Computed example of a mutant assay.
Amino acid sequence: MKDLLFEALNIDHWGEFWWIVIGLLGQAMFTGRFLVQWLASEKARKSVVPVAFWWFSIGGGLILLAYAVARHDPVFIIGQATGLFIYIRNLWLIRAERRAG
């Protein structure tokens, strides 16, 4: 069973398996952020980006960055690191707007 699983995932050991699980968790968080945004927009009957969207983005981004580092993928590392900066900046802007208003 283990050999079949490893072959299907193109991996050699359990450490790689767990990194795939972590990567899938990060990807699930990204899916969650789109579901949160879609449901909020449907409820408001207009396009809405709730704060939870940015928190899911940060969570998924951090997990996927860890995955990319573990897999030694420079393209994925750069993409996730850049995204994290943008997500954090959006939360910072939301916080500043709420304090001012």
Rank of each mutant, 00 (worst) to 15 (best):
W54H: 15
A100L: 01
V21L: 07
Q80K: 14
R71E: 09
D12A: 13
L4D: 11
Y67K: 11
S47K: 11
A40V: 02
K46D: 07
S47Q: 10
L62K: 09
I86R: 03
L4S: 13
L93Y: 00
F34P: 12
F56D: 12
V51F: 04
E42Q: 14
L93F: 00
I86G: 08
N90R: 09
I22C: 06
F30P: 02
I58M: 09
M1P: 02
G59C: 10
H72P: 06
Y67T: 14
L84W: 03
I20S: 10
W18A: 07
W14H: 11
V51D: 05
F30E: 08
F85Q: 04
A68Q: 03
Y87E: 04
V48H: 00
G83A: 12
L93H: 00
G26D: 08
A44G: 12
V69S: 07
W18H: 10
E42L: 13
V21G: 11
I22D: 08
I88M: 14
Q37T: 09
G59L: 09
L91F: 00
I94M: 04
Y87P: 07
W55V: 12
W55E: 07
W92C: 00
L25M: 09
T31P: 05
I58V: 15
I86Y: 13
V49G: 08
A81D: 02
I78L: 15
I20G: 06
I63Q: 01
L64F: 07
I88E: 10
Q37P: 02
W55T: 04
K2A: 15
Q37D: 06
H13V: 07
A52G: 11
T31I: 14
Q80V: 05
F17E: 02
F6K: 14
L35Q: 09
L35H: 05
A100K: 03
W18P: 01
F53W: 01
F56K: 13
P74D: 02
I11N: 05
M1V: 03
L62I: 12
M29Y: 10
D12L: 10
L25G: 05
A68E: 07
F34G: 08
A70C: 07
L64D: 12
G101F: 04
Q37L: 04
K2V: 14
A81H: 01
L5K: 15
W14E: 06
H72D: 11
G59V: 11
A8R: 11
R71T: 03
E97T: 00
Y67W: 00
R89P: 02
I77M: 06
G32T: 00
L65D: 08
N10T: 12
P50S: 06
V49L: 06
R33F: 01
L65Y: 03
D3M: 15
